[in-house]
Every structure is written in structure tokens, then in C-alpha cells.
């Protein structure tokens, strides 16, 4: 063997090799990804900013939203939700494809690359997608004069953290399931949709009956949204709660990623 294989180097950088391969695959879809990431925020900003927002403010002014313009109130949630759906697309589909549809992971694992590195590589590439989507959205928020450039840039890392926490769990879930068709139904209708509606996205969580509020408590979207509102508008959240929100998201991210890397190794070694 004289090809110059450096195993210690692969052990250090293997996850990055996987991530760059994933980005290369994603780049084949760049037109669609760009259209989605620009189109989606445009639709929301027009519909909510011009349509629903005007209606809300005619009804109750800004008293229900701590004095914040309605479109600005929901902007951190829209941003976090964009990170969540972006990262979900780039973890769930590649993972099911990698294990089942085209078995790419088995090809990758027949090189010195490990299951753990594959999991982390897929995750890193998904984070890149989330960063791209969130950046595009943030630029549009500036363009629509929803937020002012400044401290509100913090909305971006917060949204990516929210997406990253959810994405880590999705990476694990997608590696765990064997039958994907029911999974997509459950995920779309019973996880994503209720999370989007009941995470304090369109109205403060506290305005919901108490028995519905736990949906928000376990939702990464709610935690990221609250953090975003505090960062961008000084929303009036206690510093204790800021720590709680951060701790929740980081715990979810670390737990999800740990479970996912284990599940990848287990399933590849079968």
C-alpha cells in the first residue's frame, strides 16, 4: 500500500470529509434550496406583516406583545422555525437515504471513517444549511424593516441553536426508525405542526390555557423564540429564565447528538 493513507488524520478530520461530501450533494439542489429559503420568508413577511399584523394591531394595539410590533414579535420564532425545518430536511432525509434508500453510509463506513464521524458529518452539513437559511431570513427581516441592524444579529445564532437542538434529536430518530413512511406522517402532523402553533410563536405562551403550555416547555422552538425576543427587543425575561432556555437547548443538543452517534454505530455494525 503506497497511496499515503494517514489513519490518525482521518480519525481527526473524518467528520469534515463527510460534511463536505454532504455539502457537495446539497449543492446539486442549490436552486431549490435558495428558492425555498428566500420564498418562504417572503410569503410570511407579506402575509403576516401586511395582512395579519395590521388586523392584530387594530384589535389590541401592541399591548399583548409587550409593545413590540406584531411582525417583529413573531420574527424570532419564524427565524428559529426556519432553522428547525432546514436542519430537519438535511438530517432526516440524508439519514434515511444513507441507511436505507441508497445505503451510502455503508459505503462510507467501509473506509476508515466511523459511524460516529458519519453522524457528526451529516449534522455539521445540516447546521451549514440552517446557518444559510437563517442568514437569508435575517437579511429579509432587515430589508422589510422588521428589525434594526445591531444587537438583533444575536437572533441568528439563537435560531441556529434552536434548530441544532431539534436537529440532533431528528438525527437520532431518523437513524432509529426502520419504516419511514409512518414516521413522516407523525413527524409532519403531530410534531412539527403543533410545535409551530403552540410554542408562543404567534401569541405569548402564557396566554394559552395552562394544560397546553407544556407543549411549549418541551419545544426547542419556544426556548429559542423567548431567547430571541429577549436578545432583540429586551422583552423582559429574567436572567434565570435566559439560563434555563440556554440550558434546555444545549442539553437537548448534546443528548440528541450522543444518542445519534451511538445509534449510527450500532446500526452500521449490525
Amino acid at each position: 500500500m503506497n497511496a499515503g493513507i494517514d489513519v490518525p488524520q482521518i480519525q481527526r478530520f473524518g467528520a469534515l470529509y463527510i460534511a463536505s461530501a454532504r455539502l457537495k450533494s446539497m449543492s446539486k439542489w442549490k436552486t431549490i434550496i435558495a428558492a425555498v429559503d428566500v420564498g418562504n420568508p417572503l410569503f410570511y413577511l407579506i402575509a403576516v406583516g401586511i395582512g395579519i399584523g395590521v388586523l392584530v394591531e387594530q384589535g389590541s394595539g401592541t399591548s399583548g406583545t409587550n409593545g413590540i410590533k406584531y411582525i417583529a414579535f413573531i420574527a424570532p420564532a419564524l427565524l428559529a422555525n426556519t432553522a428547525i425545518t432546514g436542519i430537519m430536511d438535511e438530517t432526516v432525509f440524508p439519514t434515511i437515504e444513507g441507511f436505507k434508500w441508497r445505503k451510502l453510509f455503508f459505503a462510507q463506513n467501509s473506509t476508515p471513517i466511523t459511524g460516529r464521524q458519519i453522524a457528526i458529518g451529516v449534522y455539521l452539513a445540516a447546521l451549514c444549511r440552517a446557518i444559510f437559511s437563517v442568514t437569508v431570513y435575517y437579511i429579509l427581516l432587515l430589508a422589510f424593516d422588521v428589525v434594526n441592524f445591531g444587537i438583533s444579529v444575536l437572533l441568528m445564532p439563537i435560531a441556529v441553536l434552536g434548530g441544532g437542538a431539534f436537529g440532533a434529536l431528528m438525527l437520532f430518530a431518523a437513524a432509529k426508525i426502520e419504516k419511514e413512511d409512518q414516521f413522516f406522517n407523525i413527524l409532519g402532523r403531530l410534531v412539527i405542526m403543533p410545535m409551530f402553533l403552540f410554542s408562543g410563536t404567534f401569541f405569548p405562551l402564557s396566554s394559552m390555557p395552562i394544560y397546553l403550555q407544556p407543549i411549549g416547555w418541551i419545544s426547542p422552538l419556544w426556548h429559542a423564540t423567548e431567547l430571541g425576543r429577549e436578545a432583540a427587543f429586551d422583552y423582559g425575561i429574567s436572567s434565570t429564565m435566559v439560563i434555563v432556555h440556554l440550558a434546555f437547548l444545549i442539553t437537548m443538543l448534546v443528548t440528541g447528538l450522543t444518542l445519534a452517534t451511538r445509534q449510527f454505530e450500532k446500526r452500521l455494525a449490525k
Binding site: 493513507i5 482521518i10 463527510i18 462510507q108 476508515p112 471513517i113
Partner: peptide, 10 residues
């Protein structure tokens, strides 16, 4: 190319 990169080849 991608497969070769998984072996850390230049």
C-alpha cells in the same frame, strides 16, 4: 473523488 477523500488521500 469523494470516496478517495474518505481515506484521507491527497
Amino acid at each position: 473523488y469523494i470516496y478517495g477523500r474518505y481515506f484521507g488521500l491527497s
